[in-house]
């Protein structure tokens, strides 16, 4: 049995805004095993990126972790002071490919400069050695090592995304969070990047959290899948179970909304309405205003995640 590299329990991260408290991550628990890819999906605004940032120990202001635990390789990181997080955890134990990062590369510095900065800063490496390592990682992601001397505008979108991936891997973290790493890319480039991530997973035994709202892309890479709705994980388990026997009405609806390339679909299903405001989320089951099966109990009491099969949990009163 592979060992657990990441253990998250009852994690809560709220944004304290002037209009109220946004409960973006609310009682989230899951585990990630070594060499495993956990896919995280859900509609825009359900808290996927917020969860990613929280796991990095860096919620965006005005966000604060208000409860729960995050253990990376057995070590608790909630409550660690910022300088310890920066020196010992972030990028070295857990790293993140940020949503839209390839467009955030600094245009005035070379690729090499942007890649070696953390090596010199975190590892106290000499410049030569750091550059050498950057070149090795560029090769690993399928780029020519000379790219260290190039500027971002000289690279295509696919190449920039490869640079961002290499940068996230360069300190050999135990866990990598990839937030929408292929969303802005064209379909061929997107497939090339997914192939790259599969290869890295196999060759480096990477443990990864792969975030996207696109369930088709998620199926291409995830061993396990977690579906988020309004700040909570409402279904989680083995990916084949999630795709073929989805238990939660929300997961079922999301899957029925995908047009298929080789199948004739008469009518796409869609979920009426929109995800709730997380300042005042609905009572009971947060999905109840949009759920076709909502009952009295759904409006009153919140369902807990319940085991419905081996490695398959869902939170719904119907189960």
């Amino acid at each position: 049995m592979a060992k657990t590299v990441l253990e998250v329990k009852d994690l809560k991260m709220y944004y304290f805004t002037s209009r109220g408290v946004v409960r973006a991550v609310d009682n989230v628990s899951f585990e990630l095993k070594k060499g495993e890819v956990l896919g995280l999906a859900g509609e825009s605004g359900c808290g996927k990126s917020s969860l990613g940032f929280t796991l990095m120990g860096m919620p965006t202001p005005p966000g604060k972790i208000v409860g729960g635990s995050v253990k990376i390789d057995g070590r608790e990181i909630v409550g660690l002071p910022e300088d310890v997080l920066r020196r010992e955890i972030r990028w070295q134990k857990i790293s993140m490919i940020f949503q839209g990062a390839m467009n955030a590369l600094n245009p005035v510095y070379t690729i090499g400069y942007q890649m070696i900065e953390p090596l010199i800063y975190h590892r106290g490496m000499e410049k030569e050695e750091a550059l050498d390592r950057a070149m090795r990682y560029l090769e690993l992601v399928g780029l020519s090592p000379e790219i260290v001397y190039r500027y971002p505008h000289e690279l295509s979108g696919g190449m920039k995304q490869r640079v961002v991936i290499a940068t996230a891997l360069i300190l050999e973290p135990d866990v990598v969070i990839a937030d929408e790493p292929t969303t802005a890319l064209d379909v061929v480039v997107q497939a090339q990047i997914i192939n790259l991530m599969k290869k890295l997973k196999k060759e480096l035994g990477l443990s990864m959290i792969f975030i996207t709202h696109d369930l088709s892309i998620l199926a291409e890479i995830s061993d396990r899948v977690a579906i988020m709705y309004a700040g909570k994980i409402i279904e989680i388990g083995d990916s084949q179970k999630i795709y073929y026997e989805p238990a939660h009405p929300y997961t079922q609806k999301l899957l029925a909304a995908i047009p298929r390339l080789h199948e004739d679909v008469d009518k796409l299903e869609f979920i009426p309405g929109q995800p709730p405001n997380l300042i005042k989320p609905p009572s009971g089951c947060r999905f109840h205003p949009r759920c076709p099966y909502a009952m009295q109990v759904c409006r009153e009491q919140e369902p807990e995640l319940k085991e419905i099969d081996k490695d398959h949990h869902a939170a719904c009163w119907l189960l």
Partner: peptide
């Protein structure tokens, strides 16, 4: 067409063949 992702999780460990070169 080969590049289009499809929601079929059994293929997750297979590197997809993309019959095309470069960008």
């Amino acid at each position: 067409l080969a590049a289009v992702p499809e929601p079929i999780p059994e293929r997750r460990n297979i590197i997809k063949e993309l019959p095309i070169k470069g960008e």
